[in-house]
Simulated scan of single mutants.
Amino acid sequence: MPKIDLFLLLITAAVAVASFIPAQGTSAEVLDTLGGVGIALLFFVHGAALPREVVLQGLVQWRLHLFIFAITFVVFPIVVMPFGVLPAAWMPADLLLGFLYLAALPSAVSSSIAFTAMARGNVPAAICSSAASNVFGLLLTPVLLSLMTRTSVEGGFDLTRALGDVVLQLLVPFVAGHIARPGLAGIMAKHERRIGQIDQGIILLIVYTAFSQSVVDGLWSRLPPASVALTAVLCLVLLAVVLAVTAFIARRFGFSRGDEIAAVFCGSKKSLASGLPLAKVLFAAAPSFGMIVLPIMFYNQIQILVGAVLARRYARIGTMPAVAG
């Protein structure tokens, strides 16, 4: 049984504290301002941490990267779109928007690489695919979400405003960080652990302030317990379907075992580190922010637990169990 990650426990604790002691008034405004500054810092660091040579090296494996991108940005939306037929009593509109947002998110970087390495897969490909997914996802996620919400969520999604906010608040700090990388690479390598702790602290701040706002606006009175349970079940089903489809198609395409492992872990992961800050930009004024980000928070914990088991199985027996079909 894999050990529960401490960070996942801290996220759960942040939600619990916000549910009972939500930030309000002046304190909420201060924390919200700090969160905005933290998001810019987070993406500046992400940009500074991206090695240019990794992107260049990965270009030679374009076929594998296109396949992973298709899983991340095509298969996920196809699987999630039918969730819209569920009764509104079980699937409120904001929760459905959260699932659509989850489907549009880029791949996770750290967990994709870590699990690919643990399973003895193609680590360079995992680094390139997950990093590129996050870079392009900054702009692709709002576009994809706009396309999906036109038919699934009443009122749609303001793509023009969203892209403008993403460029100003996320892409500009990211590019600035990447430009500054030559002068910061040594410092970042020396303090890698501390930087990681700062990243996690910023995400915890976002979780607390976001759920505080939602709790004050009546989140738990509008989200029945059955919907919370359904969210967990649907996230588990979504992950299982994507894992099976990815492994099945990877073998039909004739990918090597190492490439299959990279595809399975990069394709099935969704980034909480990018997803929460990006949601804070896209849905800043939404009173149901907590409901919108609930699916990515559930999915993140499930993907970590399942990924750890799957990676150990890959490493132990050299392949996944046969996929029906």
Results as ranks from 00 to 15, higher is better:
A23E: 10
V237A: 14
D165A: 11
A229V: 15
K190N: 00
K269T: 12
A104M: 08
T141V: 05
F265P: 07
T26P: 00
S107M: 12
L97Q: 11
F253V: 05
G254V: 09
V80L: 06
L205Q: 08
E192I: 03
S271I: 09
G156Y: 01
G196Q: 14
F43I: 05
L272V: 07
L138Y: 09
A13D: 02
K280N: 12
V242A: 10
V54P: 03
P106I: 12
G218D: 06
T26W: 06
L163P: 05
T149G: 02
G121T: 08
G307I: 03
V54F: 10
T160K: 04
L31R: 04
L294T: 08
I113M: 09
V264C: 10
V60H: 07
F174D: 05
G325H: 09
F157T: 14
I68Y: 08
I304Y: 08
A23Q: 14
P225D: 09
M297F: 06
F136M: 06
V167E: 04
K190L: 00
R193P: 02
K280H: 11
S133Q: 08
V233L: 15
V85T: 13
S111L: 10
R316L: 12
S152E: 03
T72L: 10
R120P: 00
S214T: 03
L243K: 06
S227K: 03
G38P: 05
L159R: 09
G25F: 07
L282Y: 11
E154C: 00
V60G: 00
F289M: 15
L282I: 14
A108K: 03
L10C: 12
L163V: 14
F73N: 02
G84Y: 00
F44I: 12
V74N: 05
V75P: 02
D158S: 08
L64T: 10
I39H: 06
F174I: 10
I21Y: 11
I71D: 04
A226L: 02
M1G: 13
N300T: 15
P287R: 04
P106A: 10
L234Q: 02
C235R: 08
V123R: 01
V135K: 02
F283E: 01
V135G: 02
R313A: 02
M118A: 12
L234G: 06
V30M: 13
G121A: 10
V167G: 05
Q303K: 13
A18T: 03
A108D: 07
G38Y: 05
L96A: 13
A273Y: 04
L171G: 09
N134P: 08
C128A: 15
A48Y: 11
I304L: 15
M148Y: 01
M118C: 02
D94P: 00
L219G: 03
L294K: 02
P277C: 04
A40N: 05
F67A: 11
A131R: 06
A162K: 08
E192K: 14
G177N: 04
P51I: 12
L204M: 04
D5L: 12
V309T: 01
T72I: 15
L42E: 08
